[in-house]
């Protein structure tokens, strides 16, 4: 228990260092790479909290896909940040206020791992007791995602598919138009 706590504290310190580095560094490519490191460390925090599925999503989306998307953005905007002051005060104020509101929001959350918390009282006992009988899926997180919330997951996938398809068509269109103009 003590060991996991120490690991969590160490990982969170590394996260803060990485985040500050990503903000401070002037090369956008370096910032992208630091954000990839941030995602990998965040995934480790999730694994340490026993949320392996979330960790996996974090590593795939944060470390893999968003790095590729950010690099694709750098192809268009260039690698260097425009010169300017290191801290843009209006955005810093917006970030600090949002962060303060979010931290204030956590005060209403139940204590970490509290078995009497509301989310653990509603449908969770039913899933834990019955998911094996009702769905024949041994892992009940998978049972909830793929069976109890099957339609939700299905249409989420449809939304992401549509968004990706739209993006491909838009980018493809822009590229063809540029090529036509060049001719």
């Amino acid at each position: 228990m003590m060991t996991t706590l120490l690991i969590d504290v160490f990982l969170l310190c590394l996260l803060v260092i990485t985040a500050l580095g990503a903000v401070m560094v002037r090369s956008l490519l370096a910032a992208t790479l630091l954000l990839a490191i941030y995602s990998l460390l965040m995934a480790l925090v999730w694994v340490s909290l026993q949320a392996v599925d979330v960790a996996f999503t974090e590593a795939a989306v944060g470390g893999g896909i968003s790095t590729v998307l950010l690099i694709a953005t750098l192809v268009f905007v260039g690698r260097r940040e425009a010169p300017g002051p290191l801290i843009h005060w209006p955005s810093a104020a917006a970030v600090i206020i949002t962060g303060a509101v979010l931290i204030y929001g956590t005060f209403d959350m139940p204590r970490f791992g509290d078995p009497a918390a509301a989310p653990h009282q509603h449908v969770a006992p039913h899933y834990i007791a019955q998911s094996m009988n009702e769905t024949q899926v041994p892992n009940f997180v998978t049972a909830v995602l793929a069976s109890y919330r099957g339609y939700d997951t299905l249409f989420e996938t449809a939304v992401i598919y549509t968004a990706g398809l739209g993006l491909i068509l838009l980018l493809r269109g822009a590229r063809t138009r540029r090529r036509e103009r060049r001719r």
Partner: peptide, 15 residues
């Protein structure tokens, strides 16, 4: 994770 790690590195190197 080992598989995912590969993709970002490839993209960055290609860029």
């Amino acid at each position: 994770y080992a598989l995912i790690n590969f993709i970002a590195t490839l993209a960055v190197l290609k860029f």
